[in-house]
């Protein structure tokens, strides 16, 4: 099952990082991504698999919003 909710990287410790999901903190392996503290990541089975870009997230929202407005 894919966890769709992105988590925020709070602290890096080598290959691991503490990731915060709206208050719940879990450790994740970050060896598959280049990530900085403060970034949002998608985590799957204990491994971060992608860093979420803020620009693209906003772009998605913008497209959705546009759909509603152009109706």
């Amino acid at each position: 099952m894919c966890l769709a909710v992105p988590g925020k990287v709070i602290e890096k410790r080598g290959n691991k990082a503490v990731v915060d999901y709206g208050g719940i903190r879990r450790e994740a392996d970050i060896s598959l991504v280049d990530v900085n503290e403060g970034d949002y990541v998608i985590v799957h089975a204990g491994f971060a698999i992608q860093v979420l870009s803020k620009e693209d997230a906003e772009e998605t929202l913008r497209i959705f919003q546009e759909m509603a407005e152009n109706a």
Binding site: L32, S53, E59
Partner: peptide, 16 residues
């Protein structure tokens, strides 16, 4: 799903 999926995917993951 552009907010997560990059055209090239995750290069590090593909490599491993």
């Amino acid at each position: 799903y552009i907010r997560v999926v990059k055209p090239e995917g995750n290069l590090k993951a593909k490599e491993v």
